[in-house]
Design a protein around this nucleic acid. Structure first.
Lengths: 156, 156
DNA sequence: GTATTTTGCTAGTTTATCTAGTGAACTTGA
DNA sequence: TCAAGTTCACTAGATAAACTAGCAAAATAC
């Protein structure tokens, strides 16, 4: 069992502390997302979908209903209803896929972006405040670490 | 609006990249949690509760039903049913609170820890693999940054 | 050119959440 | 001191959101 792994050196200790820090961050993010869910009056999956769309948009990746189902691990039926809700409340639109006529591209509305950042903006400000005091070299290391971590736990 | 903030220096650029890395990590964690949900055959809130309990246990913090409701931002009624489910499936027990007879302390069962780490262990191994190549000094910076981030977005 | 797979959808069912309200236990303040 | 207000977990019943099964249309494989 992984938890029974025992640190054998100072370096191992520091690695372990880092893993704890990651889990603490995960916990804090859970709470942050819970808070946004409450503030925005949305349910947890709808908000998670919004977050996903925001991030994919920044990466210029198109998102299909299938992608959402896979991301959230819900059925395609639930995804249809989820999109019905988000479309009805004006958060997203369904666009035709450019080359596959079966498929759809889910796009955020301006209102969606605005409302998301109206609530997320304060957190963004706080996070920037945390990052700013660090040197470029340090931030470089931090970003790289996080990037590798993302890739490790969710291979592209 | 926070997104319209414009970087004015190299340092600002690196800060911005770091914020993107944080969101990418958040996205990857969402997917990881979605995967665990599927693998463990649990719903998303039940699993989030398990994660919370694991982390609080490591910090030696007792967790009440009220704490869970606050963490997930669900009603006390939903929390009761959630705990009913987790108790019925043998993941947690309800213990009397030592000093407040109205309250309860929610405790993980051994089975719960085992099953969680059976599924989470692989991710833990991957994360350790990512961390190991970094120097102690670098990991120190990374841990500190993550700690400050956690504190910023979810003040204790 | 037919067969298989993939995509998003509908219908009906099950599960999980909510609101409203309760009794018991704790806390506060006159 | 003890009455009033608050907090805690819970129940009941209503609402919302997930699931399974199955479908037609389009794409891909054979």
């Amino acid at each position: 069992m992984a938890e029974r792994w025992m640190p054998a050196s100072d370096h191992d200790m520091v690695v372990m502390r880092t893993l704890h820090a990651i889990r603490a961050l995960s916990d804090a993010m859970d709470r942050m997302h819970g808070g946004m869910k409450g503030d925005m009056g949305m349910n947890i999956t709808d908000l998670a979908t919004l977050r996903m769309l925001i991030i994919r948009e920044q990466r210029e990746q198109a998102v299909s209903p299938h992608d959402i189902a896979e991301h959230l691990r819900i059925s395609s039926a639930s995804t249809t209803k989820l999109l019905d809700r988000l479309v009805a409340s004006g958060y997203v639109t369904r666009q035709p896929h450019p080359s596959d006529r079966r498929s759809r591209v889910v796009e955020l509305t301006d209102r969606s972006r605005q409302e998301f950042f109206a609530h997320f903006g304060e957190y963004l400000r706080l996070m920037r405040q945390v990052a700013t005091p660090y040197s470029q070299e340090e931030l470089q290391v931090i970003s790289q670490f996080m990037g590798e971590l993302s890739e490790a736990i969710d291979p592209a």
